[in-house]
Computed example of a mutant assay.
Amino acid sequence: MSGGTDDGGPRPGASRYLAGLGTHATISPDELVPGAYVLSIGGSEQSHVDLAAPRHVFYAYLRRIANVLDVLKPPDEPLRVLHLGAGALTLARYVQASREGSPQVAVERERELLGFVLDQLPLALGTVLETRIGDARWELADLADRAPFDAIVLDVFSGPGAPSHLSHRDFYAEAAALLDRDGAMLVNIGDDPPLTLVRSQLAAMRTVFREVAALSEPDMFEARFPGNFVAVGLQVPWPEGWSDALIAAGPHPTELRRGVELDALAGSGQSGRLDS
């Protein structure tokens, strides 16, 4: 689907019933940020979109993902991005705003949600985005003809109820096969203490990717608070300068751990590919 229109905006308090989830989604104006909107599902805030300034990314974990996208290639070069979990398409809008014309694909399981978002929060003119309805993992096999991607963003995990078929080593291996040699797997992992999901996903990624790093607030690494980690998986050595750049980019404070620094969270076993 190529870009929509910048005209208009959502109706105040627009709502749609999501049959697959058995609850309603609503889109409401952000009263503190003119031109910005909040997507809520079942009364819980899920996404923030600034139509007036799409390079403004409100949530800290999404900002950290956006920062990794920024360092993947020189500025203004297009990025081929696969989004698994569409939400309000905040990152797809960011990529279009920062790297105009980048070819992107978004996979969303809830048909009603994707249609609602596109109706109420249209994409910027010129956006090159293919949207697909389906399960994040099962769609991977049908995306081989779109590969390779520079980045795959997975944003479906939240707490211990994560789908087992997405939280498995095999899923990461299948996703890695769609990445370019220098491409990055970016995973948002929301969790509560003792961070069981975070630990399992970092461990699974370390069996597939040569390099795995985690970004979050420093206190999160103590495993005493609920919050979000951004996991980064690479098939090449960690690029020089990335750590300093990602920490400096914030949001502040941001801590980055990789290699043996992650052993406390991901275990101290094999940290590279199983077949390396």
Rank of each mutant, 00 (worst) to 15 (best):
Arg258Cys: 08
Asp191Ile: 13
Trp238Pro: 13
Pro75Val: 07
Tyr17Phe: 14
Arg206Trp: 01
Glu174Cys: 10
Gly134Ser: 06
Leu234Glu: 06
Gly9Tyr: 04
Asp170Tyr: 13
Asp150Lys: 00
Glu112Gly: 14
Thr23Trp: 06
Leu82Trp: 10
Pro160Met: 01
His24Arg: 14
Gly126Trp: 08
Trp138Leu: 15
Gly259Leu: 12
Leu18Ile: 09
Arg11Gln: 13
Leu21Trp: 02
Gly87Pro: 11
Asp244Ser: 07
Arg11Tyr: 00
Gly227Ala: 11
Thr207Val: 02
Asp244Arg: 07
Pro10Gln: 01
Asp6Ala: 15
Asp244Lys: 06
Ser243Lys: 08
Leu121Asp: 01
Val232Ile: 15
Ala184Ser: 04
Ala92Asp: 12
Gln270Phe: 05
Pro148Thr: 00
Gly190Cys: 11
Leu32Ser: 15
Gly233Lys: 09
Pro103Arg: 03
Lys73Tyr: 08
Ala249Met: 03
Arg137Thr: 12
Gly241Tyr: 05
Val153Ile: 00
Asp192Thr: 14
Gly126Ser: 11
Arg199Trp: 01
Thr196Trp: 00
Tyr37Ser: 03
Val38Cys: 03
Gly134Cys: 05
Gly267Pro: 10
Met205Ile: 10
Leu256Tyr: 12
Gly159Phe: 09
Leu123Glu: 00
Val212Ala: 05
Leu166Met: 10
Ala147Trp: 08
Arg273Tyr: 07
Glu77His: 06
Trp242Phe: 12
Arg169Val: 15
Ala147Val: 06
Val198Lys: 03
Ser167Gly: 15
Ile27Val: 15
Arg111Gln: 05
Ser102Thr: 07
Pro226Ser: 12
Leu265Asn: 11
Met205Lys: 09
Gly159Met: 05
Gln104Leu: 01
Val38Tyr: 12
Phe157Ala: 13
Leu262Gln: 14
Glu77Cys: 02
Ala248Met: 02
Gly35Arg: 04
Val236Asp: 03
Ile247Cys: 05
Pro193Ser: 03
Glu108Thr: 13
Pro54Met: 08
Val230Cys: 01
Glu77Ile: 08
Asp263Met: 08
Asp180Gln: 07
Arg199Lys: 14
Ala248Thr: 01
Leu129Trp: 02
Tyr37Lys: 02
Val68Gln: 09
Tyr59Ala: 09
Glu211Cys: 04
Ala173Gly: 14
Ala36Gln: 08
Asp275Cys: 13
Glu31Phe: 03
Leu72Ala: 04
Arg109Tyr: 12
Gly115Phe: 15
Pro218Met: 04
His24Asn: 15
Leu129Pro: 00
Ala106Gln: 13
Pro193Asp: 11
Phe221Val: 05
Glu110Val: 09
Phe149Ala: 02
